[in-house]
Amino acid sequence: MMLTPAEIAELTALMRANGVESLDISEGEASIRLVAAPGVVAPPSSFALSPGVGHLITERAPGEPFAAPGAGIQAGDILGLIAAGLVRRPVIAPSAGVLGRALLEPGALAGFGTPLFELSPYHNDPAQAGPEDA
């Protein structure tokens, strides 16, 4: 059984997103165990996942991103779109937080559930407070 680096990255991101510490995958004789490095697992972070298979769009118009890294995000905000054929589905922020980097290049192909954006919770530090804390 072969996993591509991209698949491993996707699986580890899913593990982080769901707080999974280890994952055993087997197929016939072959098996593989993925173990998350200490401290990486579990909240603080959450992830916005791809709603389906398609290509990532990060801008609502040329030069106008849906949300820029570092921006304060509300739960339900549209962070990007997944384009398949002529239709586009929204990539939704599952919770409020500060938007991290996009985990996929604009235009790259995402699968169902692929983590696309990382969200960090707001800190209590007033300087970094999000709208909900303010």
Binding site: G76, I78, L86, V87, R88, R89, I92
Partner: peptide, 15 residues
């Protein structure tokens, strides 16, 4: 809509 936030389309300029 399947997604609560709705869905969209490629504009004719794009398509």
């Amino acid at each position: 809509t399947r997604d609560a936030a709705g869905f969209g389309a490629a504009s004719p300029w794009q398509a």
